[in-house]
Design a protein around this nucleic acid. Structure first.
Length: 281
DNA sequence: GTTCTAGAAC
DNA sequence: GTTCTAGAAC
């Protein structure tokens, strides 16, 4: 039914503004999606009102002027969205009902973000792509399966084709990027992600972003904590499961080292200043 | 995941 | 004195 189409008008606007410098030649993939969109009404645009109501009441008292709050709008209920299956393998079901990490918990945020048409950049019958809410580089997307798969541990050989498709969509995101010719991209998973629901990072290697603020951010994308998508696929093909090595969290404490020239920098500000030499604006 | 802030580092 | 980090709280 739903084949490779963008989410809705707002998503279309967003992508148009983001890629405003695209040439017509570069637009080919985007154009295909747009034409598909024109021929069909986006079902995602008729989501119901937010019934979760968990975003405005329980926050601790704090100044509400910060702009990030604005982007924390919760998505409509998941029922309202087109989903191909009734989550027969909802591995996260038990965990989501725990009092500590229930639906309102921050770690469940991707589940609502991925349902939010305003966040969606691409979707098909198997996956959805959203822009990372706190991008750690000039381009930073997340590819998520509609199917509720809580983490890498929950992946089995039955997910092999799904994970391959996620990689394929990730590659397409890179191809349609206006700066794909000058920027390098990596696609991979965090060894121990903070957010529930399997998500594939597609991130440009400039790491030029105000949201990249600390050592954990840096090392999670530049050390072996970042597991290449291809390695995950290979693990699934070879062993039918994904095993994450021990001691991964220690990698987050490694000294700050430039991923380009391997120079060690003593502080995050120094690192950011150094990165400018590799990635001038 | 982010924000906030005490206190370490300079 | 300011800058920056790390850990608690969310």
């Amino acid at each position: 039914m739903l084949k490779c189409q963008f989410a809705g008008l707002s998503a279309r606007k967003e992508i148009t503004s983001q890629f405003s410098c695209l040439t017509y030649r570069q637009l080919s993939w985007v154009e295909v999606q747009k034409r598909l969109l024109k021929t069909k009404n986006a079902p995602g645009s008729k989501f119901k009102e937010d019934t979760s109501g968990n975003h405005s009441s329980t926050k601790r008292p704090r100044e509400t002027t910060s702009e990030d709050r604005e982007s924390h709008r919760e998505a409509p209920s998941m029922k309202a969205a087109k989903q191909p299956e009734k989550a027969s393998e909802a591995i996260n079901h038990g965990e989501a009902t725990k009092t500590s990490e229930g639906f309102g918990h921050w770690s469940q945020g991707l589940k609502s973000s991925m349902q939010d048409p305003k966040m969606q950049v691409y979707k098909d019958d198997k996956v959805v792509v959203i822009k990372d809410k706190y991008p750690k580089a000039r381009y930073h997307w997340l590819v998520l399966p509609w199917q509720a798969i809580s983490s890498l541990k929950a992946l089995g050989d039955e997910h092999c084709n799904l994970v391959k498709h996620m990689q394929k969509v990730a590659d397409q995101m890179v191809q349609q990027c206006p700066h794909a010719d000058t920027l390098r991209f990596r696609t991979g998973y965090h060894a121990i992600p903070s957010m529930s629901h399997v998500h594939l990072h597609v991130i440009s290697q400039d790491f030029d972003s105000p949201c990249l603020k600390n050592k954990k951010h840096w090392n999670s994308f530049t050390s072996d904590y970042f597991i290449e998508s291809q390695d995950i696929i290979q693990m699934l093909e070879t062993y039918g499961k994904v095993t994450v090595k021990e001691g991964m969290s220690e990698l987050l404490k490694l000294p700050l080292r430039c991923h380009m020239c391997h120079k060690e920098l003593s502080t995050i500000p120094a690192l950011k200043e150094h990165l400018k030499s590799h990635f001038p604006k």
